[in-house]
């Protein structure tokens, strides 16, 4: 039955942000496709737009030379996911940020404290800009831009930061809108 909602009364959801893996259970039958993640099967019901969105995600997360380091892009995405309240995306991006940056302590501060963040320096400037781009209405204030410029982020790095933060605003709305996080079924 494709057009019924799957309820998950027995599921145990996370109650705090962490970078340990978080599973995801769809609320709609995702359809067939052996070896493909449930999220990709379900999101593909929108036709080829999901393939384009996947190519966009690939490009924004690791595409291109120079610019913001992949770990910094992941940190920006983690800040967005945390602010919006998405346990699954926060965990995945926080783990990628730790792998890329080798700064587990700073990532833990983001996970535990959220935004506004006590983080300073370059990483603090990145997460506060990502948080401002997740607000409604979205935008960077002079203060956020000043911090980015103080940390000598160049035009390309700022474009990468804007893309990474904006795109996670899309991904989180799919993840929160079509299913729920789980700590029991990974």
């Amino acid at each position: 039955m494709a057009d019924t909602v799957l309820h998950r009364p027995a599921n145990r959801r996370p109650t705090a942000f962490d970078r340990a893996p978080v599973g995801w259970l769809p609320w709609l039958e995702p359809g067939g496709g052996a070896g493909i993640a449930a999220s990709d099967r379900l999101f593909s019901r929108a036709g080829n737009a999901h393939a384009a969105a996947t190519a966009l995600t690939q490009a924004v997360q690791d595409g291109g030379r120079a610019g913001l380091a992949p770990g910094e892009r992941a940190l920006a995405a983690a800040a967005v996911a945390r602010r919006l309240g998405c346990f699954a995306q926060t965990a995945e991006q926080a783990q990628a940020a730790v792998q890329g940056l080798k700064r587990p302590r700073e990532v833990r501060v983001l996970l535990e404290e959220g935004l506004p963040s006590p983080l300073t320096g370059r990483l603090g400037a990145i997460v506060s800009a990502a948080g401002a781009l997740s607000a409604v209405p979205p935008g960077l204030t002079r203060r956020e831009i000043w911090r980015l410029e103080e940390e000598r982020l160049d035009d390309l790095e700022i474009v990468d930061l804007i893309l990474a933060a904006a795109l996670m605003n899309w991904t989180v709305r799919l993840t929160l809108g079509l299913g729920e996080p789980t700590t029991t079924e990974l």
């Binding site: 969105a53 781009l133 209405p137 935008g139 904006a166 605003n169 809108g177």
Partner: peptide, 21 residues
């Protein structure tokens, strides 16, 4: 519902790239 969610997501993305830039 999936298409609807994708449209909401896309605009949420685009408006932030525009506002940020």
């Amino acid at each position: 519902i999936v298409v609807l969610t994708q449209v909401i997501g896309l605009v949420s993305f685009q408006v932030r790239v525009v506002a940020g830039l």
